[in-house]
């Protein structure tokens, strides 16, 4: 019996190794899971088709569960292209020398975080962050988010001269922007920091009850999301591949595709566009 089991396991292990080793040269991309996670595959499936058509290579999208997983996959060369946030893009490009920000949404150079508050918190729209906020409960988005973590934390520290957990009675990380909206709407937290594009599209879709939750403060503008590509794609997929990817992204004009990001269109980007984000991340100790 024992021998039989050991024999079976050897066969199983051998076949497993065989099954894992087959892999073709596929161009793989991912995106940070900033909202609507169940629909990630459906959301980016169409982008996958579009890129495949434009680039003439097999293209595959893989869904990830966290911002860090997107950065790690990019760093490990398991994906070659990613739709990153400002902070995750900075992290990724620091870890992969030669990688480049190639395109950003039309809206991304002037991105914003909205602070939203539950109606029952009694907070009204304010011109700057005031002591009224002290002692309330507060939720960020994902720990690795630019609009959900980095920038709101920066402005909280700037306004109060203290860490968020000293200003607020309870600080949480919701995980993503739609979740932040839901938690503040439900009153789990008084205040939340949310990506303004996600907020606007949720309001447009009537997915949020604006009688229960409203915007109380808007951050100044900063640069956010971008497509970042690895520096070694030309070697792997042929000369000029990076340029072709860039053009394919910039030429994307199908409103249905763009709606998935959601952006009006894509414009060129460069690594320097995110220098300010990098400085902010360094000052908060969020990058090494």
């Amino acid at each position: 019996m024992l021998k039989k089991i050991i024999g079976l396991a050897t066969v199983a292990a051998a076949t497993a190794c065989f099954a894992f080793s087959a892999a073709a040269e596929t161009f793989v991309f991912t995106a940070i899971p900033d909202q609507d996670e169940t629909k990630l595959v459906e959301r980016f499936g169409a982008v996958e088709e579009y890129l495949e058509e434009q680039l003439g290579v097999e293209v595959r999208y893989i869904p990830v569960k966290s911002y860090a997983a997107a950065v790690s996959a990019f760093r490990n060369n398991q994906v070659q292209l990613a739709w990153f946030g400002g902070l995750s893009g900075v992290q990724a490009r620091r870890l992969v020398p030669g990688s480049e920000a190639i395109a950003q949404g039309v809206e991304d150079p002037d991105f914003q975080t909205f602070f939203i508050a539950n109606h029952e918190s009694g907070l009204e729209r304010m011109a700057e962050l005031t002591d009224e906020l002290r002692g309330k409960t507060f939720t960020f988005g994902s720990k690795g988010s630019t609009s959900g973590r980095l920038m709101p934390e920066f402005y909280i520290r700037e306004a109060f001269g203290e860490a968020p957990d000293e200003v607020f009675s309870r600080v949480g990380f919701s995980g993503n922007h739609t979740r932040t909206i839901r938690l503040v709407e439900a009153g789990t937290y008084d205040i939340g920091a949310v990506n303004y594009k996600v907020w606007e599209s949720q309001v447009k879709e009537n997915a949020v009850d604006t009688n229960k939750v409203q915007v109380i403060w808007e951050t100044p503008y900063y640069a956010d999301y971008q497509w970042t590509i690895r520096g070694d794609v030309d070697e792997r997929f042929g000369d000029g591949f990076k340029e072709r990817v860039t053009q394919a992204l910039l030429n994307m004009d199908d409103p249905e595709l763009l709606e998935r990001f959601p952006r009006k269109g894509f414009i060129p980007a460069s690594n320097e566009d995110y220098d300010a984000i990098e400085d902010t991340a360094e000052s908060l100790g969020l990058v090494n």
Binding site: S66, A68, L95, S142, K143, N288
Partner: peptide, 8 residues
């Protein structure tokens, strides 16, 4: 988890 999210 925080350390992993910060790639540390």
């Amino acid at each position: 988890d925080s350390a992993i999210q910060n790639i540390q």
